[in-house]
């Protein structure tokens, strides 16, 4: 089992890299062979990723989000699944390169940060933990998808504003569609993160009373939540348009990466799992 986990940990970023390259050929060169290979490659890799996560859970007998590495891998998996669904549902493959590149980046971070023996704490076996962490990771995955659409929205917006027609022009869905996808993903992320914050607060209050409020991880997460809440509110009030919301979404992605990686390594012990 350990050999399989080690091999899969090494293989997954490579498989996602190969898939991202295939989607790159689809986006930049409309290559016919790459067009035939990209989708099956993604589906195969996602399936392999699912097997890896299941094996990880079975081997450690706990929900596979006990370390930063495991959490990043789940985020990568969730983004890949969301994109595979979007592609299947909308028959839209032009955003594949950017989405799968992000998946590769998250999985690469996960593989690099892997630790041989994840901690085994009592809370990791609590069903409440699985709910809280699942909601948080789903929220992060949705924000990552939203940020990818935000990036593409900004590229096309700038092209159309400046009349310069770069590589992005003519290869992406219309601006309105990109904006709708971005806002949809942000709403899903915001609602699930709200659920994660609420369940986490309830659970932490029960276990740690008010001491948990000073944890840097929680403060960064709350700041991220506020950022998205403000963005959605200003949009609702017609004060912000697509461009400002897209910029906020990219800032949110930065906050998520900081929260997932840096805070865990340097500032917190309490929230070491995620």
């Amino acid at each position: 089992m350990i050999t399989f986990l080690d091999t899969a940990n090494l293989l997954l970023p490579l498989l996602y890299l190969g898939t991202a390259i295939a989607y790159g050929f689809v986006f930049f060169a409309a290559h016919p062979t790459a067009s035939r290979l990209a989708t099956p490659a993604l589906r195969g890799t996602v399936l392999f990723h699912l097997v890896y996560l299941a094996a990880l859970a079975a081997h450690h007998r706990q929900f596979p989000a006990a370390t930063v590495s495991q959490a990043l891998s789940i985020v990568a998996f969730a983004v890949a699944v969301v994109y595979a669904f979007v592609e299947w549902h909308g028959r839209e493959r032009t955003t594949g390169f950017w989405m799968v590149s992000l998946v590769f980046f998250f999985q690469l971070l996960s593989s690099v940060l892997t630790r041989p023996n994840p901690p085994d704490r009592a809370i990791f076996h609590d069903p409440f933990f699985a709910t809280h962490v699942s909601l948080a990771l789903l929220g992060y995955a949705a924000f990552v998808v939203g940020a990818a659409y935000a990036f593409l929205f900004l590229q096309l917006y700038r092209d159309l504003k400046a009349g310069r027609f770069s590589t992005f022009y003519g290869k992406l869905p219309p601006l309105e569609v990109l904006e709708r996808m971005m806002i949809g993903a942000i709403w899903v992320g915001f609602l699930t993160l709200t659920g994660a914050v609420a369940t986490g607060a309830f659970w932490a209050e029960r276990l740690y009373h008010s001491a948990w409020l000073h944890d840097p991880k929680i403060l960064i997460t709350l700041a991220t939540w506020v950022l998205y809440a403000v963005a959605l509110l200003l949009r609702r009030l017609q004060r912000w348009q697509g461009r400002q919301t897209a910029l906020a979404s990219l800032a949110g992605l930065g906050a998520i990466l900081f929260s997932l990686v840096a805070v865990n390594f340097f500032f917190t012990d309490f929230h070491g799992f995620l």
Binding site: L156, L160, E176
Partner: peptide
């Protein structure tokens, strides 16, 4: 073409 890049 421009309209198709902006509107659905």
């Amino acid at each position: 073409e421009l309209a198709r890049n902006i509107f659905t």
